[in-house]
């Protein structure tokens, strides 16, 4: 029997009709359309499906969606704010903290949960905490480096995402100028 459930994800409420045994992972991906959260092992070992619920890190492949009603769920899609990357996202980009990218949303969510609770973890604490998130590409060195870069305030985040930069530019552009530029200047006047 499907039930009506309201999930608050990244500050937005979603009304969905789901079976009571629907996993949070599948509710996020298939019912709400937030596919940034990934399924890796389906048994809560690899961490690819990591999200936070009321600030606590959970494996969404082991969490019932229905149990998350009235709670604040944050996924990777909720990290960039006002067109700017979260410092962890920026760090993973600059320090090469990913390769194939499939475990990356989970890695970043796990790191965020750690730093939200403890902004100054030691390298050993980061290693211990992040050991719940498997990565087969990087050997973890650059993930560790990325997280430590944030801990050490080495990451700047004032840059807008390219998409947002383009948005900003469009709004400041004279439409006719843009038209002229597109079609070339001399031959088309």
């Amino acid at each position: 029997m499907k039930k009506h459930v309201v999930l608050n994800v990244n500050g937005e409420e979603h009304d969905i009709e789901i079976e009571p045994n629907r996993l949070l992972l599948h509710a996020l991906r298939d019912d709400i359309g937030l596919t940034g959260t990934k399924e890796g092992c389906s048994i809560g070992v690899c961490g690819a499906c990591s999200v936070t619920v009321d600030g606590r890190l959970v494996s969404s492949c082991l969490t019932l969606a229905i149990a998350c009603q009235g709670k604040e769920i944050t996924t990777i899609e909720g990290l960039a704010k006002d067109g700017r990357l979260h410092p962890l996202q920026q760090a993973f980009l600059e320090y090469g903290g990913f390769q194939c990218g499939i475990c990356t949303p989970g890695q970043i969510m796990a790191a965020k949960a750690l730093l939200d609770g403890n902004p100054n973890p030691s390298e050993e604490e980061v290693k211990e905490w992040m050991s719940g998130n498997l990565c087969r590409c990087t050997g973890y060195y650059k993930i560790l480096e990325s997280v430590m870069a944030v801990v050490q305030n080495k990451v700047r985040t004032e840059d807008l995402l390219p998409r947002e930069r383009i948005e900003a530019r469009i709004q400041s552009l004279d439409v006719y100028k843009a038209e002229a530029r597109t079609h070339g200047s001399k031959s088309h006047g």
Binding site: T35, K38, E77, G101
Partner: peptide, 19 residues
């Protein structure tokens, strides 16, 4: 150089076959 597909991957917007 940072990855050409980097923004998609760190924001969760890269599209894998399962998506």
């Amino acid at each position: 150089v940072t990855r050409v597909e980097g923004y998609e991957k760190v924001t969760g917007e890269a599209r894998y076959v399962g998506d």
